[in-house]
Design a binder for these strands. Structure first.
Lengths: 155, 155
DNA sequence: AGATCACTTAGAGTTAACTCAAGGTCAAGA
DNA sequence: TCTTGACCTTGAGTTAACTCTAAGTGATCT
């Protein structure tokens, strides 16, 4: 079974422009053509695209994705590089998750801050509250999202 | 206590250029100046920068960060908008974490795939293995990272 | 006094990743 | 046969977020 560029664009929520751009950049090496020059995507091409999309979601730049795809074309001599690359990428993703979880602390603190400000009617009221009088878990969020800083103003 | 642009750049791992760019874009509304025009960052400015950095880490574009900072300047009338924004941003971060965790499945599958290919000496060998003969947890990773597709080729 | 160094501005240049426009081809249906 | 619609190419334009250059100022060290 093969698909046209339009069908693939639809299925993967990419624009036709983007797919052609990827091919130009060497990001779609598995795409074949009909004799009249029309692209056709077979299962190999779709699997390749799935991997590209996966790596894109990890925020890997297209030029790095291309390096990987070039290794794929080179054959078994690059198996080790490719394996190492996926292990590195795994770590990169774990790091990103950890960072997002860190930023959640400040966001959760701000959610509490604005909820309280709205209850009290003004930001000034909530700013008067010393750190020690905030709920325990909010104190923790504050400390963890503000490093070792002492209490200062909040915007 | 106040800091110069160079000290702040160093502390926050940003370039001086970037800080000036942020100010130009309205992203640093709390920065004051000396009579001779030199920027000085006080605690308010640093706290603002901390929030900016936090929002940047959630992949919020600078123009959206600016909208928030403008609301901060407008006073208590915008408290609700600001709260809602943080709740939305919290959800956005949770979604990003979930997506990264999804992509980990394909990455983990690929780690196994290349480990096995290296053990067997070639990619062709591993591709011969039918899905059913792979370890249980790898079968799961494969299925979860490939949607409802039947087994096709892997690159 | 002169050098050095961190600061200032305005504005140009860069990079990544698209995104689009113009002009053309090709195959299928009325 | 003509039209429609999806495809094609080349090349230009866009956007975000920097990043840098040139030319100049101001404070401090020797």
């Amino acid at each position: 079974m093969t698909y046209s560029i339009g069908q693939v664009a639809e299925q993967y929520n990419l624009s036709i422009h983007t797919l052609r751009y990827y091919e130009k950049e060497g990001i779609l090496p598995f795409v074949k053509r009909t004799p009249s020059g029309i692209r056709k995507f077979d299962d190999d091409a779709l699997e390749g695209l799935r991997v590209v999309e996966c790596l894109k979601k990890t925020n890997m730049p297209l030029k790095d994705i291309k390096v990987f795809l070039d290794w794929c074309q080179e054959g078994n001599g690059t198996l080790e590089k490719r394996r190492d690359m996926f292990y590195e990428q795994k770590q990169a993703v774990l790091d990103q998750i950890a960072e997002l979880q860190e930023t959640l602390k400040l966001i959760d603190f701000k959610c509490w801050y604005y909820d309280s400000a709205l209850e009290l009617g003004s930001e000034e009221e909530i700013r008067k509250i010393p750190l020690e009088e905030m709920p325990e878990e909010i104190q923790e969020l504050y400390r963890e999202s503000h490093g070792e800083f002492s209490q200062d103003s909040m915007e």
